[in-house]
């Protein structure tokens, strides 16, 4: 769907995006993660034609339309990381304005506006002035606006920044909903727990470079090192710790009365084999569990030391 190839953006001597290549398949809900200043916004703005790349190319599907062309703009709905409002403009007029900027017919826009406002749960605000809406409502209105021209690809830059937890949940539900309707969606965010719940694929970016990208399970598994194993032992502790230390990829982090905390780099299967091995070697365990590998820990691990 979206092919980004060798994309580079320099600000003077500073490289904000460094040879980024990425493919986002159709129908994905893609989470674009990275610490502040990683270059997410820069990448998104280039894709939307708001910034000129220093090098590289962006393509949607099989179309050869260049970035910033009308054809490309028709395929993208963009929700920026800010929300600009006009005073004295009503919600329906706001929608009408942007619709007509895509050359749509007023009648069609009015019909679509009703549907979209229903989708984002703002039907009762249709006659309200935009600047009187709450932040969460504005954010949802912005999503509705971005969907007006029925784009193939919806790009949201930090859609939950500044929202309260409830508004966040609503936004998440809305995005999940859109995903299930078959839209391809890209979300940039640093709220990782949120992304891990709704995205089916992610890309992690740091200092202008893409560190990894792919299906969320694959990424988590591949970089499983973030996971922690809690092992409760009722037999002798000493040999158990020794056994663990002998294993490749295992770092014993702490040993308490009868619980060992272990950092482990390995796949699901390897963890299984580790358990098997321990049992075979007469270690009696009452508990062996994985702290759910959070995206947070993965994120910290992958971007560690680079975020200053």
């Amino acid at each position: 769907m979206l092919y980004i190839n060798d994309l580079t953006k320099n600000y003077g001597s500073f490289t904000a995006v460094n040879h980024l290549s990425l493919h986002i398949p159709e129908g994905d809900l893609f989470g674009f993660v990275g610490p502040n200043g990683a270059g997410k916004t820069t990448t998104i703005r280039i894709v939307c034609g708001l910034l000129k790349a220093s090098g590289g190319s962006v393509r949607i599907g099989n179309s050869s339309a260049p970035v910033g062309s009308k054809e490309m703009k028709r395929m993208i709905g963009y929700v920026p990381d800010f929300f600009g409002v006009y005073d004295n403009l009503k919600v329906k007029e706001y929608m009408d304005m942007y619709g007509s900027m895509y050359g749509m017919d007023s009648g069609d826009i009015a019909k679509l506006t009703d549907d979209l406002l229903e989708l984002v749960n703002l039907t009762d605000k249709k006659e309200f002035y935009v600047d009187t809406l709450s932040r969460g409502m504005k954010q949802r209105l912005c999503v509705a606006r971005a969907l007006l021209h029925n784009p193939k690809l919806l790009i949201l830059d930090e859609p939950s920044s500044g929202l309260d937890p409830r508004a966040r949940v609503e936004m998440k539900e809305l995005l999940k909903n859109l995903h299930s309707m078959g839209k391809t969606i890209i979300i940039s965010s640093h709220i990782l727990s949120e992304l891990s719940e709704m995205c089916n694929s992610i890309g992690i970016m740091n200092r202008g470079q893409l560190i990894t990208a792919g299906k969320i399970e694959d990424v988590m598994q591949h970089f499983g090192g973030g996971q922690k194993l809690h092992i409760r032992v009722i037999s002798e502790m000493e040999p158990a710790v020794r056994l663990l230390q002998e294993q490749a990829g295992v770092t014993v982090q702490s040993v308490r009365e009868n619980e060992i905390l272990v950092g482990y780099q390995g796949t699901e299967e390897q963890i299984g084999r580790l358990l098997q091995y321990m049992v075979q070697n007469q270690v009696t365990m009452t508990d062996f569990y994985r702290e759910a590998g959070t995206l947070e820990s993965l994120f910290m691990q992958l971007t560690g030391g680079g975020a200053q």
Binding site: G49, L50, R74, Y78, G84, M101, Y102, G103, R145
Partner: peptide, 8 residues
Amino acid sequence: FDIMLTTC
């Protein structure tokens, strides 16, 4: 203005 520029 940016939003305007992303339209047609």
